[in-house]
Design a protein around this nucleic acid. Structure first.
Lengths: 211, 211
DNA sequence: CTTTATTTTCTATAGTTGTAGAGAATACGG
DNA sequence: CCGTATTCTCTACAACTATAGAAAATAAAG
């Protein structure tokens, strides 16, 4: 039997090598799904519409995602992965308040691309309310974010840039909720409105920490 | 012709007075809708399910809400009205930091009832992303909340309980986003988890203002 | 070119949804 | 008890959904 693993092409045990990279194709389909959700909303993200957006016919998705829920769960998980990768890039080599600022600036919906991500993550939250698996995806990333923030706050305290009496757990929680709330504000802002004062809110919060 | 206005009962111009109070019935249907969304999620809030929850058959909703969208829009609008009424009660006769605290304590999902409201408002946000009418309902309430918060902050500054250099607009924005983010944290928390540190976050934030 | 396994299209199906509307049931005035 | 307007139930229907699977198209090896 000829399996689908790309490594088997190299091994040559398969008379006809497979043509499409399954993992790559999955990512393409996820990308098409994102575009649909960002442009038309999750209600329009039907299997047919996603296939059309990706340039395929209705049934072509099944070999890559057996069910729609598989596709959506993978797609949503990938949003968090992408964001976490971007965060890792931006905070690399930084610490303390600088790292915290970079972290938040990467999560805040400050440009069109991240406003689109907000339009994707809100439907995800809605689905996660009644889907423990999806809720776990969210919660695990949030735990990770909280841990990172607490570390940055601790570093900033050592550096003397954070001096408030409010404890770091509360501060991290405030900042996380502020970031989540900003997604909603951005996603529901009228089309064209770019300025929500999010940058001022972030700088203001960081200022409050140094008191 | 016999109209549906309750005043016509009193006038006696209608040979057979109407039996059900249309407005009251609409509220009952909205209540049933809320229960369905809170318990099973918005995906399960079908016309049939809502009718069943309210104790009626499928078609009985139509005289009160011609379409499902009418029902949902009214239901979501009513969530904001209720919350705003509760806020008005709780902040009545208060000012400054005390009013601000009462306001936030009323919005934060600190008990089961308000966690259920979070499970209703998140699907609403999701729908509002691609429905300008619903987005406006949200935005108008948020504008109102922001104005109230700025007023409380100004009062608190006069009283000397808010002294931070960060300007009130940024502070109000932070607090609003914190409240919105808390809805997400609460709605996606694993069942049974009640303590999210939201109270500590609020008190911490209010402490930060006095620096 | 032929063969073979893969990949994709296309059609079909079972289920669910919002909505419409005929008819039955209901409750009240007389 | 009867008539009447209201209210509700029930059935029907058209649209749309995810999914399954047969058939066609495709691409590479020999």
């Amino acid at each position: 039997m000829c399996h689908k693993s790309p490594t088997q092409i190299i091994l040559g045990s398969c008379p006809v090598p497979k043509i499409v990279d399954h993992h790559q194709r999955r990512l393409e389909l996820v990308d098409a799904t994102w575009r649909i959700i960002a442009r038309l909303g999750i209600e329009s993200a039907t299997m047919r519409e996603i296939a059309l957006e990706a340039g395929f016919a209705n049934g072509a998705l099944k070999p890559y995602f057996p069910t729609k829920d598989d596709l959506l769960t993978f797609a949503f998980g990938h949003v968090f992965n992408r964001t976490n990768e971007r965060i890792a890039e931006v905070t690399a080599g930084q610490a303390g308040l600088e790292a915290l600022r970079a972290f938040c600036l990467e999560v805040l919906p400050l440009d069109e691309e991240r406003i689109n991500e907000a339009r994707i993550v809100i439907p995800f939250w809605q689905k996660a309310i009644n889907d423990p698996g999806k809720a776990r995806i969210h919660r695990e990333s949030m735990q990770q974010w909280l841990a990172a923030m607490r570390q940055y706050l601790a570093e900033a305290r050592d550096a003397g840039t954070v001096t408030t009496a409010v404890d770091d757990a509360a501060l991290a929680g405030q900042l996380l909720n502020l970031l989540l709330g900003a997604q909603i504000a951005a996603a529901l802002a009228p089309g064209g409105q770019v300025e929500l004062g999010l940058n001022e809110q972030l700088e203001g919060f960081l200022t409050l920490l140094g008191c």
